[in-house]
Design a protein around this nucleic acid. Sequence first.
DNA 1: TCAAGCCGCTAATGCGTATTAGCAGTTATG
DNA 2: CATAACTGCTAATACGCATTAGCGGCTTGA
Lengths: 345, 345
Amino acid sequence: MAAAKRLTQRDIARLAGVSQATVSLVLNGADGNDGRIPAETRNRVNKVIRDTGYVADPVARRMVKGLNRILGVFTYEPAFPSAQADFFTPFLLGIEEAAQELGYDLLLLTGAGTRRKIFGDNVRLRLADGCIILGRQFDPAELERLVTGDFPFVAVGRRDDAGGPVPYVGGDYAPATSALVHRARDLGHHRIAYVGLNQGAESSEDRWQGFQEAIGGADLVTNINAVGRPAAEVLDILLAADATCVFFTELADAIAVEALARNRGLSIPGDLSIVVIGNHIRAEQATGTRFTSFAIPREAMARAATQMLVRRVEDDAPVEQLLLPCEPVEGETLGPVSTQTIRIK
Amino acid sequence: MAAAKRLTQRDIARLAGVSQATVSLVLNGADGNDGRIPAETRNRVNKVIRDTGYVADPVARRMVKGLNRILGVFTYEPAFPSAQADFFTPFLLGIEEAAQELGYDLLLLTGAGTRRKIFGDNVRLRLADGCIILGRQFDPAELERLVTGDFPFVAVGRRDDAGGPVPYVGGDYAPATSALVHRARDLGHHRIAYVGLNQGAESSEDRWQGFQEAIGGADLVTNINAVGRPAAEVLDILLAADATCVFFTELADAIAVEALARNRGLSIPGDLSIVVIGNHIRAEQATGTRFTSFAIPREAMARAATQMLVRRVEDDAPVEQLLLPCEPVEGETLGPVSTQTIRIK
DNA sequence: TCAAGCCGCTAATGCGTATTAGCAGTTATG
DNA sequence: CATAACTGCTAATACGCATTAGCGGCTTGA
């Protein structure tokens, strides 16, 4: 039971009365004119293979071929634990689908409690033919090593160049944000506020850039460059600035401020319009309010990233950078600007 | 850019002016008294390794060592696509956590559109050190081959012997079902019905067995041995049989019948108590009703299965079979039997 | 002074497969 | 009839690493 030694091609060869090389040739469908195995021999070998249930060791195979048909999926953060689950699930779904279609399996390398490194001591990642990197965080040093290295990878989410162009599939936040700004302006808003970071992560910068481009500069009444600030503070600032519309980068902030505003008797969007830039998960589930926003095509991004990665692995395709459009989400928190000014403390 | 050859130990050796064997010894912490590398040489080699960013090829490593620290996760059905997602997610979560703690990575082998085989042509599964098998379906022939083979595996969910004992971690449905039956009887129910398969899958049989043991035989008024039957038919049968309480194995059936019953003016549990055997996902989300049921400890099962698998891989531990208790879920659909008989057509 | 022991390192080997060069026997070609 | 071409197969090799046997130089002990 314990020492049930694995079968090897040598075993098959012995049983079939041929050489190991012949077994290999039979297995790999002796094509062309090189290894020519007549049907009779082929059948004999195949019979032994069937009878014994032999299967080639993928490790040894990989050893000589160099490829595995395995894609790594790396996340700095744990992928499943519930808080994150809703964030990663659409990505994993898309990756799995695409990998399936392309005949690849997935090697999950998900963040530990301790931050996980790509270039650790035990880089089992190299077992895969290439990898997709998920997650908002990204160690810049590791990114640079990846870029300069020869290991195929694709990032989900736009990344700035790091010693070279980074292959990625991202959401095209800038135009999506611009479109929402234009909608707000078309609805008469002239006093617009922005709550959220405008630097740091690429995705933050993209949003901010799209916002700036569309707003023209004159209409921005307040820019609270922070996330997670107490709702009361934020709301006070917004009201003090006479904002009629506010853009949040973080759904959580929007939810808190919206609840507080209603609590204070303000009507949304009657007195204050709210736009969330990017649909974070559970927009409608956490609260009854459906925020005006745009949809991040997570599943499509993941599919595209997977396909891109396979192109790089199989055809050594050049670096691509792809941004997928984000469709607007109507929602119910953006309305025409109110003609009367209400101020309730 | 294309031919950026991977570094090997030989490269490191050349750069450090030593032999490949020395590099390997340095990497594997020359323990004991066998390969003794003085600090000076060790430092020199380590410096080159750091400078070049070399990492050992896990494939070659596996080739000689035999183990990978990778666990396969096999599902006959696709794991992520949304309909299934809620079913598999808790399992994956538990597996990921346990694997993480034990220092293993996960190789996902998820079902294709076409049914996937464990023993296919391309058994990449063997790349892993062992595997966990998820899913309700299970090809009996493959199960038998697994049992007789030497590849370590653990099933999630109880499985009957197949040419030998099957290692598994399951939910202990029988006593959990019994407990619910007793509760119903304690509440005065004497006319109990059972809707669901009582043979086929092991999990169905366990439920049925637990039900039978507790009910004693006399009280079973109807046994509709089917799932997915039209709610109207089922309800009519239940009413015709004067059932005061009904056990469903399938949540979907329970939902349909409950809705119809309410629609016809019956009160639940006033006129009819409903028990669902096993909490299928989204019990509360799909409908407002919280069914009386028992909780299947999916995450704990997955964790236990993972740990069991590692024991088998690392210590060649004997086959274990483990059933985890299922806690009762109070719910709101099981109440005392009504003294008056209401019949509404 | 010589044997024994130790130290620092390397050559050699094997893991299971794919692949190539090439051998012996047969058949076609001029 | 000699040579070429083909057929069916095998020996040999490489892939990158871990591991073991053992080599030459040095130190120690008698």
